[in-house]
Amino acid sequence: MQALRKYGDPEYWNKRYSTASGTFDWYFEYHPFIAQILDGFNSKEISILDVGCGNSKFSEILVSKGYKKITCIDYSKAFFEHLFQEFHERLPSVHYMYMDARMLSFPEASFDVVFDKGLLDSALTGELSYVNAKQIIKSCLRVLKPFGKYIIISHSDMETRKEHFLDPSFDCELRCESIVVTDNDCHEGEERLPDLTFYAYIFSKHLH
């Protein structure tokens, strides 16, 4: 656990992004399961928020699929000092903003989809992890529109995460799905990596 604590430390991310270039994705770049959820809205005009975006390729993939209202936030100053210009030039339609996911400054009910791939996992390795995790979830649910989807991708199963997610105050429907990521990029003669399993937690917000 000690080795993982660096992921909950903002300084780790500032150091990482101060020398990074190009894109890098934790867990996976994209997955048919994510596409299925987005396709369920039957519109390319839905508003999507990616929290803890870093230098992920996710926004680029969304743009390539025709989505037009994409906002990405991150709390690393180094990302905006060293990588923002590169991403902004390549993806001028995407709004990149410096913001803390625990205290999102958007108005209530601003987004159809809120997407978190690894942010909550990182928060749960740092100091005040339980407090920070609850603040992130409540903040993301606040900016989610009625009938919207808040998607959290995690390396941990429900047994491990239930104390964070099964909170009556969230007042949302929650389901968990396993996502199997296969090594589809191996070439003939190369050793195939084992499949990996991640977990998608989908909060569905209903109109009251």
Rank of each mutant, 00 (worst) to 15 (best):
Glu11Gly: 05
Cys140Glu: 06
Gln85Tyr: 13
Lys117Cys: 08
Asp185Phe: 15
Arg16Met: 05
Glu191Cys: 09
Ile152Glu: 01
Val94Asn: 03
His82Arg: 13
Phe33Asn: 00
Ile61Arg: 07
Phe106Arg: 00
Ile34Ser: 01
Phe198Gln: 06
Thr160Arg: 10
Ser156Tyr: 07
Phe147Trp: 07
Ser64Asp: 08
Lys6Ser: 08
Phe84Met: 04
Leu193Arg: 14
Leu120Tyr: 02
Pro92Asn: 08
Val180Phe: 06
Ser18Ile: 13
Glu163His: 13
Tyr30Val: 04
Gly8Gln: 01
Val131Ser: 09
Leu38Gln: 00
Val131Asn: 10
Tyr201Pro: 04
Glu86Gln: 10
Met1Val: 05
Val51Pro: 01
Phe84Ser: 04
Ser169Asn: 13
Thr71Val: 07
Tyr98Ile: 11
Thr19Tyr: 09
Leu141Tyr: 01
Phe80Glu: 12
Cys53Pro: 08
Leu166Tyr: 05
Leu120His: 06
Met99Tyr: 00
Asp185Pro: 06
Val131Leu: 10
His155Ser: 08
Leu91Val: 01
Ala101Arg: 05
Phe198Met: 11
Asn42Thr: 00
Ala3Pro: 00
Ala123Met: 07
Phe203Arg: 06
Asp195Ala: 06
Thr197Cys: 01
Leu128Asn: 10
Glu108Asp: 13
Thr23Ile: 10
Thr23Glu: 11
Pro92Leu: 12
Phe80Tyr: 08
Tyr201Leu: 03
Lys149Thr: 00
Gly126His: 03
Val143Trp: 00
Gly118Ser: 06
Tyr67Thr: 06
Gly52Met: 05
His208Ser: 14
Ile137Cys: 05
Tyr199Leu: 06
Ser93Cys: 12
Lys65Gln: 09
Ser105Glu: 12
Arg175Asn: 15
Tyr150Ile: 07
Ile136Cys: 08
Gly52Asn: 04
Lys77Ile: 13
Tyr7Glu: 01
Pro10Lys: 09
Glu60Thr: 14
Asp39Ile: 08
Leu104Thr: 08
Tyr7Gln: 02
Asp121Cys: 07
Leu120Asn: 00
Trp26Ile: 04
Ser105Phe: 13
Gly148Gln: 05
Cys186Glu: 15
Leu128Pro: 00
Leu49Phe: 03
Ser76His: 07
Asp121Phe: 11
Gln85Lys: 15
Ile153Asp: 00
Val114Ala: 03
Asn55Ile: 15
His206Val: 13
Leu141Glu: 02
Ile73Gly: 02
Tyr199Gln: 05
Leu174Ile: 15
Pro107Asn: 05
Glu89Gly: 04
Glu159Ile: 09
Val113Gln: 10
Lys134Ser: 12
Ser178Lys: 15
Pro194Lys: 03
Arg142Pro: 11
Ile151Gly: 01
His31Arg: 01
Met158Gln: 09
Cys172Phe: 13
Lys117Ala: 11
Leu196Thr: 10
Ser18Cys: 02
Lys162Asn: 11
Ala109Thr: 07
Ala101Ile: 01
Val51Arg: 03
